[in-house]
Amino acid sequence: MKKRDVLRTKFVSELIFLGGVILLWQMLYVIGVDVLSIWKPYAMPSPTGVVKSLCLLLADASLVKAVGYSVLRGVSGYMISVVLGCFLGFLMNHFDYLHRNLRPLVMGVQTLPSVCWVPFSILWFGLTQQAIIFVVVMGSAFSMAIAADNAIHNVPKIYKKAALTMGANSRQIYREVILPASLPELVSGLKQGWSFAWRALMSGEVMTTCIGLGQTLIEGRNLADINQVMLVMIVIVLIGILIDQIVFRKLERYIYQKRGL
């Protein structure tokens, strides 16, 4: 009961703070645009303008559609990259040769900003869904491979030894020891992979022509509607936070609680 109260006051104070920020923003707009005319109205978004934009985009269902397509694309690209990344990470860990030679390469490629994959991807797939998904996969799979490699590597050796002396073969060791033991670290890797995937998705969508949040953003630019641009940016942030909180925070809490971490 007490913990709940603490959480509630925290939430309320957060809400008040956000309200203050929005109020300040609106005041800045009124003073800067309407009173002093420092900024042109099309160059400065305002809270009221964003809300108006929101109503417009909700009315013709285009925002919902854009969110749906983007999330779907993001999730499918992310799934592919989880599978590929974990597999690559496993290979890099299992084979010493790959650990020594492939890992530095993967780490190098991982530093490449995901937007750099866009031209390559368009040449391969054209302006299609696949092109965007390819960018998502390239943008997150390598970081996940490194994370998986590290997670497996950091499993205390004594667990493996204990399982060996209890008669486990190498398949059983992977399934019964390495997988559960590396899970906490693996999940933080997956979480980081998601944030990479979400960013890569936006670079992909902005550069191509499929329906999605990226295109809604570009449409706002083309119409010189800064409120729409701002609105889409806010939506992108909110979805990122939402998925982080709902999926990953819960998963982490479940895994950590069980182990008393």
């Binding site: 004594i158 204990a162 002396t165 008393g260």
Partner: peptide, 16 residues
């Protein structure tokens, strides 16, 4: 092998 089981200095129990 399981015919020669080891008990270690650290407990080596699985926390999961």
């Amino acid at each position: 092998g399981s015919d020669r089981i080891v008990m270690f200095q650290e407990h080596a129990l699985f926390p999961w």
